[in-house]
Simulated assay, not measured.
Amino acid sequence: MPQAAILFSDDLWLSLNMSMDEVVSSMRKEYATKMYQQGKLTLGQGAEFCGICLYDFTALLAVQNIPVINYDPEDLDRELAEWA
């Protein structure tokens, strides 16, 4: 499995005032939500990347005002026309 390392200066690490697990969790969530927003990860992949369940990932997206459903207005109009 690929791994990545990020180096922090001692001063930066102290200013974060977080445990290593908290930093890793926070970074994973930030990255996964951005990648989901850009269409690079699915909901399931985002949840897996964060190490959380799908429900918690959708809640995380909601807190950050990132839509869970990206529906093209033209697609919606087309589907509504089919039902009319």
Score class of each variant (00 low, 15 high):
1 M>F: 12
5 A>V: 08
7 L>D: 08
7 L>G: 03
8 F>L: 15
8 F>K: 02
9 S>K: 00
9 S>M: 01
10 D>G: 01
12 L>V: 05
12 L>N: 04
12 L>M: 08
12 L>I: 04
13 W>H: 03
13 W>L: 06
13 W>I: 00
14 L>H: 07
14 L>S: 09
18 M>H: 08
19 S>G: 13
20 M>H: 14
20 M>A: 11
21 D>S: 12
22 E>G: 00
24 V>W: 11
24 V>N: 02
25 S>V: 04
26 S>K: 11
26 S>G: 11
27 M>H: 08
27 M>F: 15
28 R>E: 07
28 R>F: 00
29 K>C: 07
29 K>H: 00
29 K>P: 04
30 E>P: 01
31 Y>S: 12
31 Y>H: 12
31 Y>K: 13
32 A>E: 09
32 A>W: 06
33 T>D: 00
33 T>M: 15
34 K>T: 10
34 K>G: 07
35 M>G: 06
36 Y>M: 01
37 Q>T: 05
37 Q>P: 00
38 Q>Y: 08
38 Q>K: 14
40 K>Q: 13
40 K>A: 09
40 K>V: 06
42 T>V: 00
43 L>E: 02
43 L>W: 04
45 Q>R: 10
46 G>V: 05
46 G>K: 04
47 A>F: 02
48 E>Y: 04
48 E>H: 08
48 E>R: 08
49 F>R: 15
49 F>H: 15
49 F>M: 14
50 C>F: 05
51 G>M: 09
51 G>F: 04
51 G>Y: 05
51 G>D: 05
51 G>K: 06
51 G>E: 06
52 I>Y: 02
53 C>S: 15
53 C>P: 01
54 L>G: 02
54 L>R: 11
56 D>V: 05
57 F>H: 03
57 F>W: 02
58 T>N: 03
58 T>K: 06
60 L>E: 11
61 L>F: 05
62 A>H: 07
64 Q>C: 06
64 Q>I: 03
65 N>W: 03
65 N>G: 09
66 I>A: 07
66 I>V: 15
66 I>Q: 09
67 P>H: 11
68 V>K: 04
69 I>Q: 13
70 N>Y: 15
70 N>I: 09
72 D>C: 12
74 E>P: 07
74 E>G: 13
76 L>N: 12
76 L>G: 12
77 D>W: 14
78 R>F: 15
78 R>H: 14
80 L>Y: 13
80 L>T: 04
80 L>E: 13
81 A>I: 06
82 E>R: 15
83 W>G: 08
